[in-house]
Simulated assay, not measured.
Amino acid sequence: MEQESAKMLLGLAPNSHPSQSQVKDAYRSKAWETHPDRFPAHLKSQAESNFKLVSEAYTTLLSSAGGATRRQSVQTAAGASSYYSQSRVVIKTRVGRTQTSMIRVASLPFLFIIFGSLTLAASTASRAYKTQKEAHPSFNPFLP
């Protein structure tokens, strides 16, 4: 797909040079308008083809809009990978510990609810069984 037709499809000016954020904003609005789930069943096939065209236009413009910037950021990250990898590990460790402790604290009430309901169900079943046994005694040696 040509860049000019992709710009027009996303609603951008044909002679403009949009940034990545402008392309993303235009794509989000067009994707919302043309998403197949928003249309009735008899119009879904047309909506799907329009949605695919919008997605193709987005990838075309995104590759041209941020190609140089993306290459520079990848090269910068590759050059400073040892520095960033060490600080990322520390951040992940701290966040991981915090999230784990929060999950444990948040799961306690649910555990109490589950074990309480199981205990209540067991006691109710036991009482029902004893009442049934007293009302209808069985002389079969194979039944309790």
Rank of each mutant, 00 (worst) to 15 (best):
residue 68 A to E: 12
residue 43 L to K: 15
residue 127 R to G: 03
residue 139 F to A: 02
residue 79 G to I: 06
residue 41 A to R: 08
residue 20 Q to W: 02
residue 6 A to C: 05
residue 138 S to T: 11
residue 35 H to E: 02
residue 46 Q to Y: 03
residue 120 L to S: 12
residue 144 P to T: 04
residue 95 V to M: 13
residue 74 V to T: 04
residue 136 H to A: 08
residue 84 Y to D: 08
residue 137 P to Y: 01
residue 121 A to D: 07
residue 129 Y to S: 10
residue 142 F to N: 02
residue 107 S to F: 03
residue 73 S to E: 12
residue 65 A to M: 05
residue 9 L to K: 00
residue 53 L to I: 03
residue 63 S to A: 15
residue 18 P to S: 06
residue 17 H to E: 11
residue 112 F to Y: 10
residue 91 I to E: 02
residue 1 M to I: 12
residue 51 F to I: 04
residue 107 S to R: 07
residue 2 E to P: 02
residue 3 Q to H: 07
residue 31 A to Y: 03
residue 41 A to T: 13
residue 113 I to N: 04
residue 24 K to N: 05
residue 98 T to R: 09
residue 64 S to V: 12
residue 47 A to E: 05
residue 143 L to D: 11
residue 28 R to Y: 09
residue 88 R to I: 12
residue 51 F to M: 06
residue 11 G to Y: 01
residue 26 A to C: 09
residue 33 E to S: 12
residue 122 A to W: 13
residue 24 K to V: 08
residue 45 S to Y: 01
residue 91 I to D: 03
residue 142 F to L: 14
residue 15 N to K: 15
residue 72 Q to W: 05
residue 92 K to N: 11
residue 14 P to A: 13
residue 9 L to Q: 01
residue 114 I to C: 05
residue 1 M to Q: 00
residue 31 A to F: 09
residue 25 D to A: 13
residue 98 T to C: 11
residue 134 E to D: 06
residue 85 S to T: 12
residue 29 S to R: 09
residue 8 M to W: 05
residue 86 Q to E: 13
residue 86 Q to L: 13
residue 84 Y to H: 08
residue 134 E to Q: 15
residue 114 I to K: 06
residue 2 E to D: 14
residue 29 S to G: 00
residue 28 R to T: 13
residue 43 L to H: 07
residue 67 G to D: 11
residue 116 G to I: 03
residue 20 Q to P: 00
residue 81 S to G: 07
residue 98 T to F: 04
residue 7 K to I: 02
residue 73 S to G: 01
residue 4 E to F: 07
residue 135 A to H: 06
residue 19 S to K: 12
residue 122 A to M: 07
residue 92 K to W: 03
residue 105 V to G: 05
residue 44 K to W: 02
residue 79 G to K: 11
